[in-house]
């Protein structure tokens, strides 16, 4: 399993929201998590469900934004977004336009994890930033997000599967970072 590739695939799954990207990234997710793709996926329905859950145009049933789960009023572009923005800033990253899309959108957060993992190879101390982001941020909202997604995803096979894999991923990452902390 390639942790970076898996993160890339998670990112792409949520970032583009088009059918071809969903299919492609799902395939990578499955390969990198050493599981096999179920045969009976109705991709057309998966796409509609994906949009109902995460995109719109009706109110998304399980928005993929941390603020929705962490802000007391579920307000985006508030304190939570700004904390995540500050974190990105501390590691030298920023979105091209501030204030348009919230920095705590799931795809960006996956991308930041991916970036940090790559960086760890060069700068081992960066593990602390990764650890902080996983344990003090992502771990706090992903389980709620996954649960809301699972509750609303109906007969979906692929989305249900990906949500489950995200849940596993966050558990594992948080355990691993705990271990690495002990090592340090």
């Amino acid at each position: 399993m390639d942790r970076v590739k898996l993160l890339e695939a998670f990112r792409d799954f949520f970032h583009y929201g088009t059918l071809d990207r969903l299919i492609d990234s799902y395939a990578v997710i499955k390969t990198e998590s050493n599981t096999t793709i179920p045969a009976d996926i109705d991709w057309q329905e998966e796409e509609y469900t994906f949009n109902r859950l995460f995109v719109g145009p009706s109110t998304p049933l399980a928005p993929a934004v941390a603020s929705v789960y962490l802000d007391p009023e579920g307000q985006i572009q508030g304190k939570v977004t700004s904390q995540v923005r500050d974190f990105y800033d501390s590691i030298g990253l920023e979105l091209p336009e501030i204030g348009s899309e919230p920095e705590d959108s799931l795809a960006y957060e996956f991308d930041v994890c991916r970036y940090l993992l790559l960086l760890i190879k060069e700068v081992p101390e960066i593990i602390e930033a990764y650890d902080e982001f996983i344990n003090e941020h992502m771990k706090l909202w992903l389980p709620q997000f996954v649960q809301r997604g699972l509750e609303n995803c109906g007969d979906s096979v692929a989305i249900r599967d990906v949500l489950g894999l995200i849940n596993e991923w966050i558990k594992k990452e948080s355990e691993m970072t705990d271990m690495s902390k002990e090592l340090i």
């Binding site: 088009t18 796409e47 509609y48 949009n51 719109g56 145009p57």
Partner: peptide, 15 residues
């Protein structure tokens, strides 16, 4: 976004 059949609630994201 584009709806595949008016009133179906089946939406595709298009650029």
């Amino acid at each position: 976004m584009k709806q595949m059949g008016r009133g179906t609630g089946n939406w595709k994201r298009i650029s």
